[in-house]
Nucleic acid binder design. Structure first.
Lengths: 336, 336
DNA sequence: CCTGCGTGTGTTAACGTTAACATAGCACAG
DNA sequence: CTGTGCTATGTTAACGTTAACACACGCAGG
């Protein structure tokens, strides 16, 4: 017919079919005002008949923007990243943006560099990078000036704005809560040394104790898993002075609770336990875990607006505070 | 300098700076072979200096493809969807594709229609739709001929290929396992009636029992939650004939296990319990749940290749079989 | 009757890239 | 010395859209 066979219909094809100029088709496609009802109807009919799909490429080329934000992620499957993704998607939808993702096959700096280079060739107006990449990768990362880039990390980067949940401040919340309940002799169960989040939680804990004039004992070290929490809990059970435990995540906190109970101690009557993350395990039956909840969706939304809003230049560093969720593993301190 | 101020550098700017033609810049950018080392170096230097970023829009316009696949999702956060997303990301990365997501604000058909219309204007070569959308929405869905569309659902659609884990066949696996252990008197705990997955699991179970000459008793109905599983389990505990329970998901299966134990029965010695999904709860401490695992990443990969591979026309319907994971909640049948 | 204005439409020129073709230089077989 | 083929480079013409401008028309006020 009127269309060149094989190709998908363009505005020119629609214009020919509807007997109008190509510009009028463009006006209809964009919902512009100055089109008479009769013409609009004819054009819409022609579009439908020809299965017209506007070329996003041509539009973006002309317009100079893509209305899409890039996301370079290592492991979206992980709890925190997922909730952040959800926040990014929310913010994107409200702004009429899409989210374009590429996965990084591993956590190395090479992988990040490659993902970022690939992003430069993708139709995105800004880039959000992060999701479980270890800190050392970011330190060598150089963003392209042609693509506004936001990093999801606690470590401040000289060239990019960063966003993260306040992994330092959360420990202050826990310290407030536990000292408020009268606890003085407390233990911290840290995550793996390589983890930036764990390091900040530990630092925040140390500083919070010092600020309250309490001694900070050496942390026990776990690996984020419930089993490592169990081991730490077993060790703590033998120390009769301890009345409260703060574990750097919920999984380990759960392990601590199990170990304490297996050792014949009651939680929270004998020992209080607090976790961080408010992950699924924190709400399990058998009494929820007292923990710190982060607004991860806000983390995502913030990253989005920094990446595409572009307003405030100069590397800003946003830290989103958590809130303490009191469930049934903390109570007033009593000697064991 | 050589570049028009305000704009980001184009190939023409780079060409001017390097003293070559624009086409040569294009060749370098694409990594084409026929460029001398000296020229290549000069061009790369100019690119670096000008902060050149190739225009994805112009490329796609010229090339006619985007190297990106669209994903219209309702709730990515949910367990199954997430793993599927991961599979899509994997396949996309291997094919050098990006994944462009838009979120649907709710599950209504309007929302789906709107998301699909938005996708038509996005830079994608194919579209994957699904992720927790209820079946009725798909039935009224009409794909655009200009955008190859794949549906993630068990219900076959006349116009689109569909992909899903085999929600029917999984019940056959469970029936094989349990009858193999000598169980005859079994109960099925279904999910909510609105759920397509639950309906197919139930149908598969009925058919599997019939094929084995066993009577299929009326299913108990839950709502996917552990509490509803607990109720069902409590009812089953009172029926001394029953030696095995098949719950339509792991959460409910977990509830059943708890109820049976609270009623003084041993699992698996007195009653065997099987779930479906191999979700996190299935691997909890205290003895893992026997369950059916689906290869959800394969679901995602399959959807990807159907969406962009485009090879086989005509609506194909792919069902990916699960595998039974035997853990510690099933054992040989013994009278209670 | 002219001027001015608003409304619907058409015309033209980019946007930045790549494919196809053209050309210049050089090596080498005949 | 001519012709053939290869390599490195340049030239031209799209790809499909939108912004800017131009035009034709009807209608108001002078």
């Amino acid at each position: 017919m009127g269309t060149r066979s094989g190709r998908t219909a363009s505005m020119a094809d629609v214009a020919r079919a509807a007997g109008v100029s190509q510009q009028t088709v463009s006006r209809v496609a964009r919902g512009a005002a100055n089109v008479s009802d009769a013409t609009r109807r004819r054009v819409l009919d022609a579009m439908r008949e020809l299965g017209f799909r506007p070329s996003s490429a041509a539009r973006s080329l002309r317009r100079g923007s893509y209305r899409s934000v890039g996301l370079a992620a290592y492991d979206v499957t992980e709890f925190g990243n997922l909730a952040t993704l959800d926040g990014i998607l929310q913010a994107a939808r409200e702004a009429g943006f899409a989210v374009t993702m590429v996965e990084m096959p591993d956590e190395g700096p090479m992988s990040l560099a490659r993902a970022s280079r690939r992003m430069l060739e993708l139709p995105v107006d800004g880039l959000i990078v992060g999701m479980s990449v270890e800190a050392r990768d970011f330190s060598t990362f150089v963003p392209s000036p042609a693509l506004p880039t936001v990093l999801l990390t606690m470590l401040e980067h000289p060239l990019c704005p960063t966003v993260d949940s306040d992994q330092y401040g959360c420990s202050g919340l826990v310290a407030d809560h536990l000292t408020g309940l009268g606890h003085r002799e407390m233990r911290f169960v840290a995550g793996p040394e390589a983890s930036v989040d764990s390091r900040f939680r530990e630092l925040g804990w140390r500083d919070a104790l010092r600020a309250r004039g309490l001694p900070a004992s050496e942390p026990l070290r776990g690996d984020w898993g419930a089993d490592s929490g169990y081991e730490a809990g077993a060790a703590i059970a033998r120390d009769r002075a301890v009345t409260a435990v703060y574990a750097a995540n919920d999984q380990m906190a759960l392990g601590v609770v199990c170990a304490l109970r297996d050792a014949g101690l009651r939680v929270p009557e004998d020992v209080s336990v607090v976790g961080v993350d408010d992950s699924l395990v924190a709400t399990l039956p058998g009494g929820g875990l007292t923990t710190v909840r982060f607004d991860l969706a806000a983390r995502g939304r913030e990253a989005f607006s920094l990446a595409v809003g572009g307003a405030g230049e100069g590397a800003r560093h946003v830290r989103i505070p958590g809130t303490l969720v009191e469930r049934s593993t903390t109570a007033a301190a009593r000697p064991r």
